[in-house]
Amino acid sequence: MIWKEKYKIGVPEIDGQHEELFARVTTFVQTLRSDKPWEDKVAKVNETLEFMKDYVVTHFQDEEAYQAEIGYPYLEKHREVHNNMVAYVAAVSEEYEKEGYKEELMQQFGGRLLAWLINHVVAEDQKIAEYARSKEVTQ
C-alpha cells in the first residue's frame, strides 16, 4: 500500500493515524503474502492483528471526535460504517481463534481490509475534509 499526499484530510492527528494504519496494514499484507510456510509467519500475523484491533478503535474514536467538533452532518452514518468494520474485525478474530489460526480466513480478511481501508480513506474520509474546507474550520 502506498500512502499518498492526496489521502490527507488536513488534520495532522488524523492524517498521522491514517499513515500509521497504512503502514501497519502494509506490514500485515507483506507478512501474509510472503513465501514462508504459514507456521513461520502466523506469530507475526497474530501480533499485527492484535495491534490493529486496538488501533482501529482508537483511530475511529478520534476521527469521530473531530467530526463532532466541526459539526460534520454525516457523523452518525460515518460512525455506523466504523462500527460495522469493528464488528467485522471482532467476528473474524473470534472465528480465527476458534478454528485454530488457519491461513485461509486471514487471507480473506487481508484482501477485504486492503480494499476497505483504501476506499474509506480516499472516499469516505475525504468528505470530512471537503466539509471542513467548506466551513473553513480546517486547522
Binding site: 487471507q107 480473506q108 487481508g110 484482501g111 477485504r112 486492503l114 476497505w116 476506499n119
Partner: peptide, 10 residues
Amino acid sequence: EFVKSALGEI
C-alpha cells in the same frame, strides 16, 4: 482467497 476477497469488497 486474498484476491477474491479484495475483489468482492470492491
